[in-house]
Write a protein that binds this DNA or RNA. Structure first.
Length: 326
DNA sequence: TTAGTATT
DNA sequence: CATAATACTAAA
């Protein structure tokens, strides 16, 4: 019995391999989009496939993907994926998990250096035989080496249960709120959306003195290490080497910044697509008219949604099912 | 100036 | 024909 989750994982694997293969972005996107549709369906795909219209009724499913998923549901296998896996070593997918190595770099390592596994990459870097590859300069190799070291000492970066993050989030937010320069402080990201597992924590601070606030943030007692600090953002590690990003924004941009940093990514893409269809553009600084560039919203989250003709959507519902299209 | 990666 | 926008770094 092939579950919907199995289908999602298979489609995503196909997309990842196609991406390394260098397939055109729309083709890759089609598989990702089909996967995300399946994620949001409560009903077993096998039932949908069995009735009239079948899988073609699903948004994001055309004849090509419907046929391949049909194979998978019937036989538990997808010939197309198996063929891809013979063309492209699937171990390349593990390379992509190294920070700084994306699909293009994985492809270069494979084609130009015959590297298909993390171990081979490590050996090649230590042996200094990765010089002169296209787009792989000294700095980039250094960064990859550092990522590999981090992987050895601390393992692969893992998500934390919400209960682990909650106390530290509260402490950091409270500490920021005490600062006189901070006009408003709110956690954003997946934390604000109420997710159970968190990859990192985003905190947005409205302030007229970003530098002061970010320096003070980096000096808080909960902070174990400052990863980077600029004029708009300070990234740190707290306990468990959990990453927290503090973002300083101008007070009148707080609403747009909260909207952007709360996400989800899929939700932001939908909102921005809707904005374009209305002759508007949305970014983390506000809502603007495409022609003229006049700013029409962004002080508050409500104003952002209102400018797009929507009522405010609770963060918990900001996924790709939120009704923002049309 | 362009490419690639990362971020929501 | 086809889902957004921005920031940053390194390479060329």
């Amino acid at each position: 019995m092939v579950s919907n989750d199995d289908v999602v994982r298979t489609l995503e694997r196909v997309a990842d391999l196609l991406e390394i293969k260098g397939e055109n972005v729309y083709n890759v996107r089609a598989y990702r989009s089909a996967a995300s549709q399946v994620e949001n369906i409560g009903e077993p795909l096998a039932d949908i496939a069995a009735r009239e219209g079948g899988l073609l009724d699903l948004p994001g499913f055309g004849p090509a993907i419907a046929e391949k998923v049909g194979d998978l549901l019937q036989s538990g296998r997808m010939g197309f994926l198996e063929q891809l896996e013979t063309d492209i070593p699937p171990t390349l997918l593990e390379l992509r998990e190294i920070p700084g190595v994306g699909p293009r770099t994985a492809a270069v390592l494979w084609h130009e250096a015959g590297i298909t596994t993390v171990d081979e990459l490590e050996a090649a870097i230590r042996g200094g035989r990765l010089g002169g590859l296209p787009r792989l300069g000294a700095k980039t190799l250094e960064r990859i080496a550092a990522s590999l070291d981090e992987r050895h000492t601390h393992g692969v970066k893992q998500r934390r249960p919400r209960a682990d993050v909650e106390p530290i989030a509260t402490a950091l937010v409270d500490a920021l709120r005490v600062m006189p320069e901070a006009c408003a402080v709110e956690p954003a990201g997946s934390f604000r959306r109420g997710r159970a597992d968190l990859g990192d924590l985003d905190i947005v601070v409205a302030t007229g003195e970003p530098r002061q606030v970010l320096v003070a943030f980096g000096a808080l007692p909960q902070v174990e290490r400052v990863l980077l600090r600029g004029d708009t953002k300070c990234s740190v590690h707290v306990a468990f080497r959990f990453q927290v990003d503090c973002r300083a924004v101008a007070p009148h941009e707080f609403g747009a910044a909260m909207q952007y940093f709360t996400g989800s990514q899929a939700h932001n893409v939908q909102l921005r697509g809707r904005a374009l269809r209305m002759g508007l553009t949305l970014n983390e600084y506000g809502v603007f008219r495409v022609d003229g560039g006049e700013r029409i919203a962004g002080d508050t989250e409500e104003s952002v949604y209102a400018a797009l003709g929507l009522s405010w959507i609770p963060p918990e519902q900001r996924d790709d099912r939120a009704a923002v299209t049309r």
